[in-house]
């Protein structure tokens, strides 16, 4: 289990990561989301003992990463930022180097390349590889030593659709075998597919975290249809005036209101009391993308 407690990293006066606290349980796939500059890569680098935190604590299975790095990170595999390798060396030699430094066995490296779909090009210099091939090699390197915690920073970048599907299946298998996975990505649909839990970072702070299903369920939006255009205009004025001011907008003839699903009946009664007949009322099921935009741009959906 990975625990981050009040983690802070500053570059000059700017806090890149600010008081970040989160927990990644064993066997879960945890998505770390956020816009550019949110602090995702810095957070991952601090977990990996690459960037020193200014404050806070990181533990893996109770062992402090910054006090006992070798013990804490013994069974951690990582792909951080872009997959970086010696361009003049072959894929096989690059894996040998990673394994040799980590004190891991080099016996099955050729087989691992075959599994990664790089068997035919294992002897070619990595400098000749496409982005997708480098990404596959980076993931293969991260998986050396059968890690119990896998940290993947933007692992789907450059992968073709088949590669993405294979990666998704592999990560699910790993999680089922008890491996925890932290997965940072901009591809929110992918994260929604793969991750059980997510944390959303913005400007170094965690603005939301929890199970994906809970976060999307707690998005708190209702979609309403009330009849013609005039009735819709009247209804949206009522909703905006309701409860001290509620955010709402019209989307394709329907009213999209920022109201929790459990208050649907109360809203319906309020509209009916004001002579608005509600033809359709249902909770909006937001995608992770919509949730993300809502959280980092607070004016959405009222616009």
């Amino acid at each position: 289990m990975l625990v981050l407690e009040q983690l802070t990293k500053r570059y000059g006066p700017r806090a890149v990561v600010n008081d970040l606290t989160l927990t990644v349980e064993s066997g879960t796939i945890f998505g770390l989301l956020g816009p550019n500059g949110a602090g995702k890569t810095t957070t991952l680098a601090m977990i990996l003992h690459l960037v020193r935190p200014d404050a806070g604590r990181i533990t893996i299975d109770g062992v402090d990463v910054w006090r006992q790095p070798r013990a804490a990170l013994r069974s951690v595999g990582a792909l951080i930022e872009t997959p970086a390798f010696y361009p003049y060396l072959s894929a096989l030699d690059n894996l040998r180097i990673v394994a040799g430094h980590a004190g891991l066995s080099t016996g099955d490296l050729a087989q691992r390349l075959v599994t990664a779909g790089l068997g035919d090009v294992g002897g070619q210099p990595v400098g000749t590889f496409s982005q997708g091939m480098r990404q596959r090699l980076g993931i293969t390197a991260a998986l050396l030593g059968s890690p119990r915690l896998l940290i993947l920073d933007e692992p789907t970048v450059g992968l073709d659709p088949r590669g993405v599907v294979e990666l998704r299946a592999m990560l699910k298998d790993l999680a089922n075998s008890g491996c925890s996975i932290i997965f940072s990505s901009h591809q929110l649909a992918e994260v929604q597919h793969i991750c059980d839990h997510v944390a959303l970072l913005n400007a170094g702070r965690c603005v939301a975290q929890g199970a994906v299903a809970d976060l999307l369920g707690a998005g708190g939006r209702l979609l309403l249809r009330v009849g013609d255009e005039a009735a819709t205009e009247a209804a949206i004025r009522l909703i905006r005036a309701w409860n001290g001011g509620t955010k709402a907008r019209i989307v394709e003839g329907m009213i999209d209101a920022l109201v929790p699903a459990e208050r649907a009946a109360v809203l319906n009664r309020y509209l009916v009391e004001h002579a608005v007949a509600v033809a359709e009322l249902r909770p909006a099921a937001p995608s992770l993308e919509e949730f993300f935009l809502n959280q980092i741009a607070p004016n959405h959906p009222a616009g």
Binding site: L48, P83, F85, Y86, L104, L144, I151
Partner: peptide
């Protein structure tokens, strides 16, 4: 320059 330091040190050789 190539970013290999991160790749190698992330595996904690010390």
């Amino acid at each position: 320059t190539w970013g290999i330091t991160r790749t190698l040190l992330a595996r904690q050789p010390g």
